[in-house]
Design a protein around this nucleic acid. Structure first.
Lengths: 241, 241
DNA sequence: TAGATTGTTAATCGATTAACAATC
DNA sequence: TAGATTGTTAATCGATTAACAATC
């Protein structure tokens, strides 16, 4: 339970939160396969994490299992879905109808997770008035009018870098629930005021670069004799990272 | 240096590696501003991390600073760039010329980080032969021919989910350096065989969802003065479900 | 009941922060 | 030199894993 006896909410550690979507994916897959029941041991083998971690993680939110039985797959999936706000009926708008914004609106990601894209916004003459995946592109000036006329929870930021901060500011003023920021511009808001999730694609590319470059170095080391058998061989099994 | 005296490579912790791209961005910005010198203390204030962590992180790779002076910004930037493989002249191909692939090829991300996109691949009649951002879309059958005829380091995977595993397999066989996987399909390879970096956009959206949803619950807690202290409701974070 | 497996506490491990001696 | 600030070791904190009693 994430409430102590005095009913004060206890923050779930970020490490745990980061793992939740992965549980969600695996459980969805298990349901698709018709599994009705699974133990932490079986799930651990499947996901390459310890059974202990699975039980510990799930117990941050409540006792979802049953001793001697394991977990009921659909019940557990329902619980995790609920925790992750799937089915909360969140509405999103996309700011920027450029390549990235248009790619996002076409992906099934949002609807698969119960998030409804209700509008896109752009300044460019070329884009305003068009439709992508059935979503209208509205002029940026109408942002406030639109958002007061209808519930909007998430602002997806894909506009040019220079506009990121002013637009974030406008969305905060509107009282939107969260920002999904793709532009690599760092936004500093009090998390109690607005939730921010940054997608740093460039950072991810750099990390891949690093892995490739460092593997090359390691290889070159391998070739030179010195090879000492009792080294631990870069043992990184983290499939997700 | 990440080599000990005996020249054995010591694995840098994933926590440190994840932070490197952020240092890279801040240093690039400092250079743009004309800064020539910075101390760990100043950088820590700027980046909102401890000075201790900055010094600790940088020292995994070598002594880049100077006591009593701090760090030379361009030197440090050059070092981090090198560690991250910027300027290593990596070549990338994009598998899948759908919305996502086309969005990626248009972003300046790759060239800004010294990675060259040398081709896109697709099966669809509609796409093969077209050009996006000056990059040709080739038929998927030519994957092997193309990659043996020219150095390719990175495969960006944006093709349909069902094709992800077979295509990854082909790229591994070709001996490509790393995969940048956007499709949320988990790939399990020995990191010594191929580097894999997964971009789970759906997971990121879920985490944002979680933050928004849990903030709402916290708010509601604030409002209700004090719940019944000794109830153990399995589900108090279930106002809407 | 006996076997299985959770929920949970305790032990271990890793990562972050603090402190300070080295040194520019 | 004196002041500043690194590089590095030691202390703290948090997260993961192991162990086991509770219990289905």
């Amino acid at each position: 339970m994430d409430f102590e006896e005095n009913e004060k909410p206890v923050a779930v550690s970020p490490a745990v939160v980061k793992r939740l979507p992965r549980y969600y994916r695996y459980l969805r897959e298990l349901i698709a396969q018709g599994r009705t029941r699974i133990s932490s041991g079986e799930l651990s083998a499947l996901m390459n994490v310890t059974a202990s971690q699975i039980r510990q993680d799930l117990n941050c939110f409540g006792g979802f299992g049953q001793q001697g039985y394991g977990y009921n797959v659909s019940y557990l999936f329902a619980k995790i879905s609920e925790i992750l706000g799937v089915g909360a009926g969140f509405h999103a708008i996309i700011i920027g109808a450029g390549d990235l914004g248009r790619a996002l609106v076409h992906l099934s990601m949002f609807e698969k997770r119960g998030v409804d894209i209700v509008a896109m916004f752009d300044t460019g003459e070329g884009m305003v008035g068009k439709q992508f995946a059935g979503v209208d592109v509205l002029p940026l000036e109408e942002l406030e009018t639109f958002c007061t006329g209808q519930k909007v929870d998430i602002g997806v930021i894909t506009c040019p870098k220079e506009q990121v901060r002013p637009i974030a500011e406008r969305l905060v003023r509107i009282g939107i629930g969260g920002l999904w920021n793709y532009m690599g511009v760092e936004l500093k808001y009090d998390p109690r005021e607005i939730a921010v999730e940054n997608v740093h694609l460039g950072d991810s590319l750099m990390i891949l670069n690093y892995k490739i470059a460092s593997r090359k170095h390691a290889r070159q080391e391998e070739l030179s004799p010195d090879g000492d058998p009792d080294t631990n061989p870069l043992d990184e099994n983290d499939p997700d990272a």
